[in-house]
Design a protein around this nucleic acid. Structure first.
Lengths: 123, 123
DNA sequence: AAGTTAAATAACCGAATGGTTCAATGCCAA
DNA sequence: TTGGCATTGAACCATTCGGTTATTTAACTT
């Protein structure tokens, strides 16, 4: 019931789980820029963008600077390498997945449905 | 202003953002198994595991079957390919990151008076 | 000194998460 | 048929998330 120490991957993956944040990263791939320029494509208040930036910062995906009244954001893609490194361990599964899954689904479809939720009546 | 249609990547990345679910995937990499065997390593109630499985299912990462009173889970790693495909677009950034980031941090720490507005375009 | 602009904070809100317990369902076995 | 096991469902709870508006801080501009 206490919370476990959040893994770095938790922060990285959950930062990537939001389309706004992925779009921000895409913009930052074009170069360092200010918060208001980052906010511009979204119809969203400034503070909302600030919060997204905090999430990205917590994940280590951006580095913030200070220049006059601006707080420029710079992409730091290093954590994305951690994410891919984790995903790499599963590569063989999606490469083999045709065989394995087809085999499994074949077996299941002979006597079952793909339905899972909903009230399951006896058959 | 309400919620935008959730991207597939949203579901995939947020499924991966939890250590319990990553552990479940790791176990499933060893082969199809039942819910209670999946639950065994965790100090967590059954329904909690069921909820995690629903999240994984929503992300398309597992396929559920029926076998007597068991509901076996099988890994489907295909969505992980989508995730890596997305991440691949940033590979060059973490490969170059030494140069770019060092350069940036150097620049910021020595003299913080470079213009950041419209860094990649003329204003 | 006053005003403008960039951004962050604070306080708030509704919805989603991650967990719980207790009850129901489906399936097998004695 | 009765009982037990595997699993899900329902209701509940605390926390987090993603957004809002209003206020505040900081730096430039006039």
């Amino acid at each position: 019931m206490p919370k476990m120490t959040p893994d770095r991957l938790d922060h990285i993956f959950s930062a990537l789980a939001d389309p706004t944040r992925r779009a921000i990263l895409a913009r930052l791939a074009l170069g360092t820029t200010s918060v208001s320029e980052l906010a511009e494509p979204f119809q969203m208040s400034g503070p909302a963008v600030t919060k997204h930036l905090k999430v990205l910062e917590r994940a280590g995906l951006i580095i913030r600077g200070r220049e006059a009244q601006f707080r420029p954001c710079t992409l730091d893609a290093a954590p994305l390498k951690e994410a891919t490194d984790w995903l790499e361990r599963y590569r063989r599964f999606w490469e083999e997945s045709f065989d394995r899954l087809e085999e499994y689904l074949q077996e299941v479809q002979t006597n079952g449905e793909k339905d899972v939720r909903g009230s399951s009546r006896d058959k």
